[in-house]
Protein backbone atom coordinates (compact mmCIF):
# COMPACT_ATOMS: atom_id res chain seq x y z
CA UNK A 1 0.00 0.00 0.00
CA UNK A 2 2.71 2.47 1.02
CA UNK A 3 4.65 1.23 -2.01
CA UNK A 4 1.81 2.05 -4.37
CA UNK A 5 1.34 5.42 -2.69
CA UNK A 6 5.05 6.19 -3.05
CA UNK A 7 4.96 5.21 -6.73
CA UNK A 8 1.94 7.39 -7.33
CA UNK A 9 3.63 10.30 -5.61
CA UNK A 10 6.82 9.78 -7.60
CA UNK A 11 5.00 9.56 -10.92
CA UNK A 12 2.95 12.66 -10.12
CA UNK A 13 6.02 14.61 -9.06
CA UNK A 14 7.92 13.57 -12.21
CA UNK A 15 5.01 14.66 -14.40
CA UNK A 16 4.76 17.93 -12.45
CA UNK A 17 8.47 18.64 -12.85
CA UNK A 18 8.26 17.90 -16.57
CA UNK A 19 5.27 20.19 -16.99
CA UNK A 20 6.99 22.91 -14.96
CA UNK A 21 10.15 22.74 -17.07
CA UNK A 22 8.03 23.26 -20.22
CA UNK A 23 5.88 26.01 -18.74
CA UNK A 24 8.51 27.89 -16.70
CA UNK A 25 8.81 31.56 -17.52
CA UNK A 26 12.59 31.78 -17.81
CA UNK A 27 15.50 29.49 -18.73
CA UNK A 28 16.89 29.20 -15.22
CA UNK A 29 13.66 27.96 -13.68
CA UNK A 30 13.01 25.63 -16.60
CA UNK A 31 16.48 24.19 -16.11
CA UNK A 32 16.04 23.64 -12.39
CA UNK A 33 12.74 21.87 -13.01
CA UNK A 34 14.41 19.75 -15.67
CA UNK A 35 17.21 18.73 -13.33
CA UNK A 36 14.66 17.86 -10.65
CA UNK A 37 12.82 15.78 -13.23
CA UNK A 38 16.04 13.85 -13.90
CA UNK A 39 16.50 13.11 -10.19
CA UNK A 40 12.91 11.93 -9.87
CA UNK A 41 13.42 9.65 -12.86
CA UNK A 42 16.49 8.16 -11.18
CA UNK A 43 14.34 7.45 -8.12
CA UNK A 44 11.67 5.92 -10.33
CA UNK A 45 14.23 3.56 -11.87
CA UNK A 46 15.31 2.52 -8.39
CA UNK A 47 11.70 1.75 -7.52
CA UNK A 48 11.51 -0.39 -10.66
CA UNK A 49 14.56 -2.33 -9.51
CA UNK A 50 16.74 -1.06 -12.37
CA UNK A 51 19.61 0.21 -10.26
CA UNK A 52 22.03 0.33 -13.20
CA UNK A 53 19.69 2.58 -15.13
CA UNK A 54 19.13 4.74 -12.05
CA UNK A 55 22.88 5.20 -11.58
CA UNK A 56 23.31 6.12 -15.23
CA UNK A 57 20.38 8.51 -15.12
CA UNK A 58 21.83 10.23 -12.04
CA UNK A 59 25.29 10.37 -13.62
CA UNK A 60 24.01 11.85 -16.87
CA UNK A 61 21.83 14.24 -14.88
CA UNK A 62 24.83 15.48 -12.90
CA UNK A 63 26.92 16.00 -16.03
CA UNK A 64 24.17 17.73 -17.96
CA UNK A 65 23.51 19.95 -14.94
CA UNK A 66 27.06 21.32 -15.21
CA UNK A 67 26.66 21.80 -18.96
CA UNK A 68 23.22 23.39 -18.85
CA UNK A 69 23.96 25.68 -15.90
CA UNK A 70 27.04 26.90 -17.75
CA UNK A 71 24.97 27.52 -20.87
CA UNK A 72 22.23 29.36 -19.00
CA UNK A 73 24.82 31.54 -17.26
CA UNK A 74 26.07 32.68 -20.68
CA UNK A 75 22.62 33.45 -22.10
CA UNK A 76 21.37 37.02 -21.95
CA UNK A 77 18.38 37.50 -19.65
CA UNK A 78 15.94 38.66 -22.34
CA UNK A 79 15.51 37.38 -25.87
CA UNK A 80 18.74 37.49 -27.89
CA UNK A 81 19.05 40.32 -30.41
CA UNK A 82 18.04 39.10 -33.87
CA UNK A 83 16.28 36.02 -32.51
CA UNK A 84 13.06 35.06 -34.30
CA UNK A 85 9.87 36.02 -32.45
CA UNK A 86 8.34 33.29 -30.25
CA UNK A 87 5.81 31.09 -32.08
CA UNK A 88 2.25 32.41 -32.26
CA UNK A 89 -0.82 30.75 -30.76
CA UNK A 90 -1.62 28.71 -33.89
CA UNK A 91 1.81 27.17 -34.13
CA UNK A 92 1.79 26.49 -30.41
CA UNK A 93 -1.59 24.81 -30.68
CA UNK A 94 -0.49 22.67 -33.62
CA UNK A 95 2.70 21.65 -31.83
CA UNK A 96 0.71 20.86 -28.68
CA UNK A 97 -1.81 18.74 -30.55
CA UNK A 98 0.93 16.84 -32.37
CA UNK A 99 2.80 16.16 -29.12
CA UNK A 100 -0.37 15.06 -27.38
CA UNK A 101 -1.22 12.70 -30.25
CA UNK A 102 2.21 11.12 -30.16
CA UNK A 103 2.04 10.76 -26.38
CA UNK A 104 -1.41 9.18 -26.49
CA UNK A 105 -0.37 6.77 -29.24
CA UNK A 106 2.70 5.82 -27.23
CA UNK A 107 0.64 5.26 -24.09
CA UNK A 108 -1.82 3.10 -25.99
CA UNK A 109 0.98 1.10 -27.58
CA UNK A 110 2.66 0.55 -24.21
CA UNK A 111 -0.56 -0.48 -22.50
CA UNK A 112 -1.25 -2.95 -25.31
CA UNK A 113 2.21 -4.55 -25.11
CA UNK A 114 2.12 -8.30 -24.48
CA UNK A 115 2.23 -9.29 -20.83
CA UNK A 116 4.46 -10.85 -19.68
CA UNK A 117 6.77 -9.06 -22.10
CA UNK A 118 9.04 -11.25 -24.21
CA UNK A 119 12.41 -10.95 -22.54
CA UNK A 120 15.98 -11.97 -23.07
CA UNK A 121 16.63 -11.97 -19.31
CA UNK A 122 16.92 -15.75 -19.13
CA UNK A 123 19.39 -16.28 -22.02
CA UNK A 124 21.31 -13.24 -20.75
CA UNK A 125 21.60 -14.86 -17.32
CA UNK A 126 22.49 -18.25 -18.81
CA UNK A 127 25.47 -16.74 -20.59
CA UNK A 128 26.94 -15.25 -17.41
CA UNK A 129 29.17 -18.19 -16.42
CA UNK A 130 30.83 -18.20 -19.84
CA UNK A 131 31.86 -14.58 -19.23
CA UNK A 132 32.74 -15.07 -15.55
CA UNK A 133 30.40 -12.24 -14.58
CA UNK A 134 27.59 -11.82 -12.08
CA UNK A 135 25.96 -8.65 -13.42
CA UNK A 136 23.88 -9.29 -16.55
CA UNK A 137 23.99 -5.60 -17.48
CA UNK A 138 27.77 -5.72 -17.71
CA UNK A 139 27.47 -8.96 -19.67
CA UNK A 140 25.25 -7.20 -22.21
CA UNK A 141 27.56 -4.20 -22.43
CA UNK A 142 30.92 -5.94 -22.68
CA UNK A 143 29.76 -9.39 -23.79
CA UNK A 144 26.72 -9.96 -25.93
CA UNK A 145 26.49 -6.46 -27.39
CA UNK A 146 30.10 -5.40 -26.95
CA UNK A 147 30.17 -4.02 -30.50
CA UNK A 148 27.56 -1.42 -29.54
CA UNK A 149 29.60 -0.34 -26.52
CA UNK A 150 32.77 -0.19 -28.57
CA UNK A 151 31.13 1.94 -31.25
CA UNK A 152 29.58 4.20 -28.59
CA UNK A 153 33.10 5.00 -27.40
CA UNK A 154 33.93 6.08 -30.94
CA UNK A 155 30.76 8.21 -30.96
CA UNK A 156 32.01 10.02 -27.86
CA UNK A 157 35.42 10.60 -29.41
CA UNK A 158 33.89 11.99 -32.60
CA UNK A 159 31.64 14.23 -30.48
CA UNK A 160 34.71 15.50 -28.61
CA UNK A 161 36.44 16.32 -31.90
CA UNK A 162 33.26 18.13 -32.90
CA UNK A 163 33.30 20.19 -29.70
CA UNK A 164 36.98 20.97 -30.15
CA UNK A 165 36.34 22.05 -33.74
CA UNK A 166 34.44 25.06 -32.41
CA UNK A 167 37.68 26.57 -31.07
CA UNK A 168 39.02 29.70 -32.76
CA UNK A 169 41.80 28.82 -35.22
CA UNK A 170 44.43 30.54 -33.10
CA UNK A 171 43.45 28.60 -29.97
CA UNK A 172 43.52 25.14 -31.60
CA UNK A 173 45.46 22.75 -29.41
CA UNK A 174 45.19 25.04 -26.39
CA UNK A 175 43.45 24.53 -23.07
CA UNK A 176 39.72 24.72 -22.39
CA UNK A 177 38.96 27.43 -19.84
CA UNK A 178 42.29 29.12 -20.60
CA UNK A 179 40.40 32.41 -20.66
CA UNK A 180 39.24 32.17 -17.06
CA UNK A 181 40.62 34.71 -14.61
CA UNK A 182 42.48 32.16 -12.52
CA UNK A 183 43.88 30.20 -15.49
CA UNK A 184 47.59 29.52 -15.56
CA UNK A 185 48.07 29.50 -11.82
CA UNK A 186 47.20 25.99 -10.66
CA UNK A 187 47.26 25.21 -6.95
CA UNK A 188 46.80 28.84 -5.99
CA UNK A 189 43.14 28.31 -5.43
CA UNK A 190 42.44 31.67 -6.98
CA UNK A 191 38.85 30.79 -7.85
CA UNK A 192 36.34 33.41 -6.82
CA UNK A 193 34.60 31.13 -4.38
CA UNK A 194 36.48 29.90 -1.34
CA UNK A 195 33.95 27.21 -0.48
CA UNK A 196 34.34 25.74 -3.95
CA UNK A 197 38.08 25.44 -3.33
CA UNK A 198 37.47 23.73 -0.02
CA UNK A 199 35.03 21.32 -1.66
CA UNK A 200 37.52 20.64 -4.42
CA UNK A 201 40.13 19.73 -1.84
CA UNK A 202 37.88 17.50 0.26
CA UNK A 203 35.80 15.62 -2.30
CA UNK A 204 38.23 14.21 -4.89
CA UNK A 205 39.95 11.63 -2.64
CA UNK A 206 36.55 10.14 -1.80
CA UNK A 207 35.24 10.59 -5.33
CA UNK A 208 38.21 8.89 -6.95
CA UNK A 209 37.87 5.93 -4.59
CA UNK A 210 34.14 5.74 -5.29
CA UNK A 211 34.71 5.92 -9.04
CA UNK A 212 37.21 3.07 -9.01
CA UNK A 213 34.95 1.08 -6.72
CA UNK A 214 32.00 1.50 -9.11
CA UNK A 215 34.08 0.14 -11.98
CA UNK A 216 35.37 -2.76 -9.88
CA UNK A 217 31.97 -3.92 -8.60
CA UNK A 218 30.45 -3.55 -12.08
CA UNK A 219 31.31 -7.17 -12.83
CA UNK A 220 29.08 -8.44 -10.04
CA UNK A 221 26.72 -5.62 -9.03
CA UNK A 222 25.28 -2.40 -10.42
CA UNK A 223 28.05 -0.09 -11.53
CA UNK A 224 30.58 -0.16 -14.31
CA UNK A 225 32.79 1.91 -16.56
CA UNK A 226 30.31 4.61 -17.42
CA UNK A 227 29.12 5.26 -13.89
CA UNK A 228 32.64 5.13 -12.46
CA UNK A 229 34.00 7.26 -15.28
CA UNK A 230 31.32 9.87 -14.66
CA UNK A 231 32.27 10.21 -11.00
CA UNK A 232 35.95 10.54 -11.92
CA UNK A 233 35.09 13.13 -14.60
CA UNK A 234 33.10 15.12 -12.05
CA UNK A 235 36.11 15.15 -9.69
CA UNK A 236 38.41 16.41 -12.44
CA UNK A 237 35.93 19.14 -13.37
CA UNK A 238 35.48 20.16 -9.74
CA UNK A 239 39.21 20.55 -9.23
CA UNK A 240 39.52 22.46 -12.50
CA UNK A 241 36.60 24.75 -11.66
CA UNK A 242 38.19 25.62 -8.35
CA UNK A 243 41.41 26.43 -10.14
CA UNK A 244 43.34 23.68 -8.37
CA UNK A 245 44.37 21.94 -11.60
CA UNK A 246 44.47 23.05 -15.20
CA UNK A 247 42.65 21.11 -17.86
CA UNK A 248 45.10 19.55 -20.32
CA UNK A 249 46.01 21.19 -23.62
CA UNK A 250 43.77 19.63 -26.29
CA UNK A 251 46.77 19.33 -28.58
CA UNK A 252 48.97 17.51 -26.07
CA UNK A 253 50.25 14.14 -27.21
CA UNK A 254 49.80 12.68 -23.73
CA UNK A 255 46.13 13.64 -23.61
CA UNK A 256 45.54 12.22 -27.09
CA UNK A 257 47.14 8.93 -25.95
CA UNK A 258 44.97 8.87 -22.85
CA UNK A 259 41.81 9.40 -24.93
CA UNK A 260 42.69 6.79 -27.52
CA UNK A 261 44.08 4.15 -25.17
CA UNK A 262 40.76 2.81 -23.83
CA UNK A 263 39.03 2.24 -27.18
CA UNK A 264 42.35 0.96 -28.61
CA UNK A 265 42.60 -1.71 -25.91
CA UNK A 266 38.95 -2.61 -26.57
CA UNK A 267 39.65 -3.00 -30.30
CA UNK A 268 42.84 -4.97 -29.58
CA UNK A 269 41.09 -7.42 -27.25
CA UNK A 270 38.25 -7.67 -29.77
CA UNK A 271 40.56 -8.52 -32.66
CA UNK A 272 42.56 -10.89 -30.43
CA UNK A 273 39.25 -12.71 -30.02
CA UNK A 274 39.78 -14.11 -33.52
CA UNK A 275 42.94 -15.85 -32.36
CA UNK A 276 41.76 -16.78 -28.86
CA UNK A 277 38.13 -17.75 -29.36
CA UNK A 278 37.43 -17.71 -33.07
CA UNK A 279 35.52 -14.47 -33.49
CA UNK A 280 35.60 -10.69 -32.99
CA UNK A 281 34.98 -9.65 -29.36
CA UNK A 282 34.80 -13.26 -28.20
CA UNK A 283 36.50 -14.13 -24.91
CA UNK A 284 37.81 -17.64 -24.14
CA UNK A 285 35.99 -18.90 -21.06
CA UNK A 286 39.12 -19.35 -18.94
CA UNK A 287 40.31 -15.75 -19.21
CA UNK A 288 37.00 -14.01 -19.98
CA UNK A 289 36.79 -12.16 -16.68
CA UNK A 290 40.39 -10.85 -16.69
CA UNK A 291 39.95 -9.67 -20.28
CA UNK A 292 36.70 -7.92 -19.43
CA UNK A 293 38.27 -6.24 -16.42
CA UNK A 294 41.21 -5.20 -18.58
CA UNK A 295 38.80 -3.54 -21.03
CA UNK A 296 36.86 -1.83 -18.25
CA UNK A 297 39.93 -0.51 -16.48
CA UNK A 298 41.47 0.65 -19.75
CA UNK A 299 38.26 2.40 -20.75
CA UNK A 300 37.70 4.17 -17.43
CA UNK A 301 40.48 6.80 -17.54
CA UNK A 302 39.83 7.49 -21.23
CA UNK A 303 36.13 7.87 -20.57
CA UNK A 304 36.58 10.04 -17.48
CA UNK A 305 38.88 12.50 -19.25
CA UNK A 306 36.70 12.43 -22.35
CA UNK A 307 33.52 13.25 -20.45
CA UNK A 308 35.21 16.03 -18.52
CA UNK A 309 36.59 17.58 -21.71
CA UNK A 310 33.25 17.24 -23.50
CA UNK A 311 31.74 19.42 -20.77
CA UNK A 312 34.67 21.81 -20.61
CA UNK A 313 34.24 22.77 -24.27
CA UNK A 314 36.70 23.87 -26.93
CA UNK A 315 40.12 25.37 -26.33
CA UNK A 316 40.09 29.08 -25.51
CA UNK A 317 42.66 31.74 -26.24
CA UNK A 318 44.69 32.47 -23.08
CA UNK A 319 43.55 35.41 -21.02
CA UNK A 320 46.07 37.93 -22.26
CA UNK A 321 45.47 37.09 -25.93
CA UNK A 322 41.91 38.31 -26.11
Amino acid sequence: MTGALLDLLLAGAALGAAAWSVAAADDRRALLAFLGYGLLLALAWTRLGAVDVALTEAAIGALSAVLLLGAVARLPAGPAPGAPPPPGPVRRAVAGILCATVSLALMAAILLLPSPAPSLARPAAEGLPALGLGNPVTAVLIGYRALDTLLEKVVLLLALVGVWSLAPDAAWGGRPWAGRPWAGRPWHGAAPDGSLVLLARLLPPIGILLGIHLVWVGAEAPGGTFQGGTVLAAMLLLAAMAGLVELPRTGSRGLRWLLAAGPAVFFAVGLAGYALAGSFLAYPETVAKPLILLIEFALTPSLAVLLALLLAGPAEPPRGAR
Binding site: L151, R253, R256
Partner: peptide, 22 residues
Protein backbone atom coordinates in the same frame (compact mmCIF):
# COMPACT_ATOMS: atom_id res chain seq x y z
CA UNK B 1 32.78 -12.47 -42.57
CA UNK B 2 35.87 -11.01 -40.88
CA UNK B 3 36.07 -8.52 -43.76
CA UNK B 4 32.94 -6.89 -42.37
CA UNK B 5 34.57 -6.48 -38.96
CA UNK B 6 37.63 -4.99 -40.63
CA UNK B 7 35.43 -2.55 -42.55
CA UNK B 8 34.61 -1.07 -39.13
CA UNK B 9 37.86 -1.73 -37.27
CA UNK B 10 40.21 -0.22 -39.87
CA UNK B 11 38.59 3.23 -40.11
CA UNK B 12 37.88 3.52 -36.39
CA UNK B 13 41.33 2.32 -35.30
CA UNK B 14 42.57 4.77 -37.92
CA UNK B 15 40.67 7.55 -36.16
CA UNK B 16 42.41 6.63 -32.89
CA UNK B 17 45.81 6.59 -34.56
CA UNK B 18 45.19 9.93 -36.28
CA UNK B 19 44.13 11.46 -32.97
CA UNK B 20 47.40 10.39 -31.36
CA UNK B 21 49.67 11.25 -34.27
CA UNK B 22 48.16 14.67 -34.89
Amino acid sequence: GPLLVLALAVPFCGVLAMLVLG
